[in-house]
Design a protein around this nucleic acid. Structure first.
Lengths: 233, 233
DNA sequence: GATTGACAAATAATGTACGATCTGGAAGCT
DNA sequence: AGCTTCCAGATCGTACATTATTTGTCAATC
């Protein structure tokens, strides 16, 4: 229970009031939860967190309240906050929701797509194929740009926000594990097929494709999580 | 811009430290936003709210953070909080999401439904038909019980939570307006047909039915909102 | 004379410190 | 053993200090 956020402080050694490099308390806590640095259902004591973060208690309390609103922590009156377990169930849950939402967003995108959009998508896709998973970080950014381009102009901002939130969570989790080779080739295939459907103005096909894509990603992450849990508990 | 939460203080007159009747600051603020007592994009000043609520600023700040997590207020650093507009767009957005989620939840329910469940659903439906919209409040509760029974045992807690949140918002909004007679009869019809599909183990039919039900409710609320906005701006 | 720029004062958000209140568990009593 | 009492620890609320933003004024320039 010692190192939670201090894990990444290895570089800046015994430094209390570290000038936080742009990351807010909220983000730090959120990352600690998503990355599993705090155990499931573990109690989060504001005083502890405050000293660990190098601030007073008030910012921590507000961060916790925000996290409660987003469902990452569970708070009971006069009894503090506990972390919601980010386990395979959680991933499955949000993936299932995405399987419902993303096809709808995609279907709409096919209806409004322009020649320029397709060109940009293809250029992104070319970049993705170019680096071929050499840099996971870069790949993730490109992948995000790919999907963001499709969804960003959608009128349903609420749905897009939901997608973004889920996406960030999944991305943070999947960053813990490497992507298997088979999944890598599947991702490339799925993107290619998706592009083909978009170009052909086949909304149903594109929706079906994105559904498969999301489901595949989710399944892959869950398998990796299960594996990691079994090998190194 | 004077009376926001004080509207309901009319009864307890000039009483500073009113023993709040179970409603937390968070709930008060949330209701004020949903019910449109605060104008869209209006700035929420913590000091104002604190004095209005009869407390100090800290509880207000935490409530605002929670609301931010849930997307009801938008906060920018060093610039405070603004209320997210709860307009027709907002309702349309969450209804569209529900149109995607609820059919999936319903489909699963049809797969695990027992004889006892159906009996209880029918008893609730009988009660609903019995009071025939005489008491909107009671009707809402029964309607909630009806759908809750279907969704509550679903394994995807995240999706069910989302549904619950959306449901509460919609309910709070629709409470502002009376339900039209035509919509009333439609609701009854839709429930009846839904029950028939469930009894017949017709998952696709039930899903289609609930989709129509949600869409109809959403459309009705939006129309009412538009009407109210046009008649009394 | 009107516009724009900088500077200063007000206003409001953010952070810190401390006291009040509640919970949980351990020690003591029947 | 079971119940009560009490104390340590943590949360929650209040007050205050600090910092950032906004506003208003005045002067300099076009």
């Amino acid at each position: 229970m010692s190192t939670i956020t201090n894990i990444r402080d290895a570089s800046s050694e015994g430094d209390d009031s570290m000038e936080d490099g742009g990351s807010s308390i909220y983000e730090r806590l959120r990352d600690d939860i998503i990355h599993g640095r705090v155990k499931a259902n573990e109690r989060l004591k504001v005083a502890d967190l405050a000293s660990r973060m190098g601030t007073s208690t008030n910012p921590v309390r507000e961060a916790l309240q925000q996290l409660r609103g987003e469902g990452f922590v569970i708070m009971t009156p006069n009894r503090g906050a506990r972390v919601r377990p980010i386990d395979e169930e959680f991933v499955r849950d949000i993936c299932e929701i995405e399987v419902l939402i993303e096809p709808a967003l995609t279907r709409w995108f096919v209806g409004i797509v322009t020649k320029e959009d397709i060109e940009e998508l293809e250029s992104i896709q070319a970049e993705i194929e170019g680096l071929n998973f050499a840099d996971e970080m870069k790949h993730s950014n490109l992948d995000l740009r790919f999907h963001k381009l499709m969804y960003d102009r959608h009128y349903n901002r609420h749905a897009v926000d939901l997608w973004m939130r889920h996406r960030h969570i999944l991305w943070a989790i999947s960053r813990r594990f490497p992507t298997s080779l088979s999944r890598q080739s599947n991702v490339l295939d799925e993107h290619r097929e998706l592009l083909a459907c978009i170009k052909a103005q086949d909304a149903d096909g594109a929706a079906r494709m994105i559904g498969r894509h999301v489901e595949g990603s989710g399944r892959h992450i869950i398998e990796r999580m299960r594996l990691a849990r079994l090998t190194a508990p």
